[in-house]
């Protein structure tokens, strides 16, 4: 691989990571706030627990599957969007908590 091609690929990777955004989802009052977000592949979502008890955000959507595990109060967990498939996030403890993630 010539030097120019390596430089180009590295630049593209840096550019993608620079453009990636972080979206903060608060878990407060047994609700995801906001309850709907639009993201892009490579973006990250920070799940923040503002409630005085544990939450456990997860999705079983095949291409973006994640499980932040039992998240104690005031803890934050970051996940990365891997695929262009939109999905819903639920709390494993409080299934009335729903977050719709639109991936563009």
């Amino acid at each position: 691989m010539n030097k120019f091609l390596k430089f180009l690929l590295a630049s593209l990777a840096i550019s993608a990571s620079v453009n990636a955004q972080n979206h903060v989802i608060d878990q407060s009052g047994k609700t995801f706030i906001p309850s709907k977000i639009t993201v892009r592949v490579g973006d990250t979502i920070t799940f923040k627990n503002s409630d005085p008890f544990a939450h456990n955000a997860y999705t079983d959507e095949e291409n973006n599957e994640f499980d932040v595990g039992m998240q104690a109060p005031s803890k934050e967990t970051v996940i990365t969007i891997k695929s262009a498939d939109s999905f819903n996030v639920e709390c494993a403890i409080h299934p009335n908590m729903l977050l719709e993630v639109i991936v563009k």
């Binding site: 047994k30 008890f53 494993a92 403890i93 409080h94 299934p95 009335n96």
Partner: peptide, 14 residues
């Protein structure tokens, strides 16, 4: 904390 709302359950799992 768990038995909330009109149905006296918030549907949570414990």
């Amino acid at each position: 904390d768990c038995h909330d709302n009109f149905n006296f359950s918030n549907g949570s799992f414990h």
